[in-house]
Design a protein around this nucleic acid. Structure first.
Lengths: 220, 220
DNA sequence: TAGATTGTTAATCGATTAACAATC
DNA sequence: TAGATTGTTAATCGATTAACAATC
């Protein structure tokens, strides 16, 4: 059994993977390099990578392909989970169109909504069906992952239906604290939290900027 | 000058605000209650709230309206920042349609793209213009906030254009580490990080579940 | 070899949690 | 009053950073 990973480490690991995938074009890479590119302490990078079980070579660093593979194994990016998405609003449609999710182990195989206009259509190649069919289909197809993109006030009842259908993990985009049994795993994606952080940080940033001597305040 | 807030605290504060806004329907609320609803330690809640400068009453808790106000002031939710959004793909369109951002201080006043099909149209009431006009307009309108929803390979050049236009903070949805001057504030929204976390956690969850005695493993 | 980088242990830092007096 | 809750200080926990020997 793999040991528990600290949450901050788990947040950084995918960034390393993407860096290797998209940016690094060389056989080996050192923690120093990774750290410079992602603005992280090299020692921290090394500690994080340790969790994947990979070992490097002094003076050389890590073999890029091996490291990429180790990260994929550790993050389970190579095996795809089928998922249902409920709520074909603008966000739901955007997620259906984001094919790159498959590279990260998520394949949305069906969408659901209550809107009769939407039921029966295909969005980005994914069929949309009536919400009432969802629990039965989830059980029949053995789907264990659900994505919730409905308005806040419907989110809890959708979660209940998912659980009824045997779904075990929920990616929740609705701005609500879902109440679920202990054995159900919920991952919240709360854009409003991000936005409030941004709002606060921008205001502080501007305040600091404005309190500075008027050196180069106007760029124009 | 307000003191620096720990990042974890800053992530929790918006959740308190939303709870007060949507769920709590009573004059006063205690940290115990908030903690129970959000599954947080009451002491932690109290410490977090302390940063807003509000004081409560023993035995009673905090006055809900005052607390809500204190959170809004602290997070700067009451003053709206105008923003430009670049990249009218499915995610960009979804964000344009998400009117609730205004409650969190963000108002997207224009969208930009290079696609001539999109330029000149309105999406959810927001006009779409040609990307080349963006820097000039940003400077003329004094817009200081930019949202990037273009594909990864265009993100850096869009960021450069934003900075050229005098934009000071960037909400970045493209899966790239942007390179910007020190005085520009970047807030990354990397769904792939979330997804990889989810992927890892779900796999662990399933592993733990499967290693349990076969008590009630099949719910059906 | 010389020197950069790994692997690993120790020191520091900061956030969470516990404890408890003050108070409404 | 009695007791729950605040405000605040101390203890714990865990993550980050520093130090350094091992090594290619």
């Amino acid at each position: 059994m793999e040991q528990a990973v600290p949450a901050p480490t788990l947040r950084r690991l995918p960034r390393y993977h993407r860096l290797l995938e998209d940016v690094i074009d060389q056989p080996c890479v050192s923690c120093t390099q990774i750290g410079r590119l992602l603005k992280l302490d090299p020692t921290q990078v090394r500690k994080d990578l340790e969790y994947t079980g990979i070992t490097g070579k002094p003076r050389v660093g890590y073999e890029v392909n091996a490291l990429k593979q180790a990260l994929e194994d550790f993050l389970h990016l190579n095996k795809t989970d089928e998922a249902f998405l409920v709520g074909i609003g603008s966000l739901g449609q955007a997620l259906l169109g984001y094919t790159r999710f498959q590279e990260y182990g998520l394949q949305i195989v069906a969408g659901f909504d209550v809107d009769v206009e939407k039921v029966g259509t295909d969005i980005h190649g994914v069929p949309v069906r009536d919400l009432s069919e969802m629990p039965g289909l989830a059980r029949r197809m053995g789907v264990r992952l659900g994505v919730i993109t409905v308005p806040a006030n419907y989110a809890q009842s959708v979660a209940d239906m998912m659980i009824e259908g045997g779904i075990l993990a929920i990616w929740n985009f609705a701005p609500v604290q879902l109440v679920v049994p202990d054995d159900i795993f919920v991952h919240d994606e709360h854009l409003y939290v991000s936005l409030a952080q941004l709002s606060r940080r921008l205001a502080q940033h501007l305040a600091r900027r404005d309190s500075l001597p008027v050196l180069e305040k106007t760029r124009a």
